[in-house]
Amino acid sequence: MNFESVHLLNDLGNAVENGQGERIKRISVSQQIQDSLRARIVSLELAPGQNLSRSDIATHYGVSQTPVRDAMMKLEEEGLLTIYPQSKTEVSKIDVEHARETQTLRLSLELEVCRRLAKSGDPKAIDQARKILHLQETALSDGDLGLFSMLDKRFHLSLFQAVGIANLWQLVASRSGHIDRLRNLNLPDPGKAANILHYHRLILDAIESGNVQATDEAVRSHLSGTLETVDQIVARNPDYF
């Protein structure tokens, strides 16, 4: 990750999600473990169906089993873990129907966000998204798909921030474990990352021109990509579903 990437990501991370108020700087140990485990599950480092030992996780993070238990219970509520009492805990298989539901929610919200931006007549509203797009291009050129994926989320978050409803992005993100895993299985496919950049450019160009119809079309086409290939993804990774 280059210096510019680090600087922008730090700025975004330190920004208040809705552009107002104060950022909470301290979170509980269990929340930190939950966030870390979630990231490892979504990235597929912890694979669907993998058994997780509470004691091993506690040792990994250097904590007692209590915050690990609390974190795992929260992840079960998200549908990312399956806990069998007095038996075992497994990373949940990818639920395609849940992914479709979340995508429906995200599409409806993101269409409204981008329509507002297109109607605003303020090209500066998407300056942050333009910067992130540039960093995404660099990440792809460098072959860094991990950074590319992180910046992809930042790109969409920046659009929600631009209209002052970043809390709704957090709502979508909290439900996105299954669809995000599908995307991470799809991302290495030839041409997929370049296609994402293509649609990001189309979305920003349509917003900047104030063309609401073109904005709608670009958002719909962009967000439909992974689910249109879900049968192929499942066929290649049957043990994950």
Rank of each mutant, 00 (worst) to 15 (best):
N186I: 06
E90D: 10
R69C: 05
L151R: 02
L151A: 04
Q128C: 15
N186T: 07
I207N: 00
D127T: 12
M150H: 03
A39P: 05
P85Q: 06
G177N: 06
S158R: 04
T104E: 14
S30Y: 12
V42M: 08
E22P: 00
A166P: 08
P48A: 08
E78A: 11
N10P: 01
G121R: 00
S64F: 07
L109G: 07
I207A: 02
L145G: 03
N167K: 08
N167M: 09
L117F: 02
L111F: 02
L185Q: 05
H178T: 10
R236H: 10
E112F: 03
L117I: 03
N2C: 03
L105E: 14
K124Q: 10
Y240I: 08
L147Q: 01
F3C: 00
E77C: 07
R23H: 00
L157T: 03
L117K: 01
V234E: 06
C114G: 02
T138D: 11
L204E: 04
N10A: 09
Q136R: 14
G143E: 04
E101Y: 13
V234L: 13
N186A: 14
E78P: 11
I24M: 04
E4A: 11
H156E: 13
L157V: 01
N18E: 11
L44N: 07
D239E: 13
A47G: 00
T226Q: 06
V42E: 06
F148E: 05
G143H: 06
T89C: 12
L117E: 02
A71T: 08
D142F: 03
V163Q: 01
I132C: 02
T89W: 00
T138R: 13
G79I: 11
L12V: 07
N18T: 11
Q128E: 14
A206M: 07
S30C: 08
R115H: 10
R69H: 06
L135M: 08
P188M: 01
V212P: 05
I94P: 04
A129G: 15
I165F: 02
H200I: 07
H98D: 13
I196F: 09
G79Y: 06
L185T: 05
R106H: 15
G62K: 13
I132G: 03
G121K: 02
A162E: 01
V6P: 01
R54Y: 07
P123S: 04
L159T: 04
S224Y: 09
S221Q: 13
P238T: 12
R23M: 00
I57M: 10
R106N: 15
L227N: 05
H60F: 14
V96T: 13
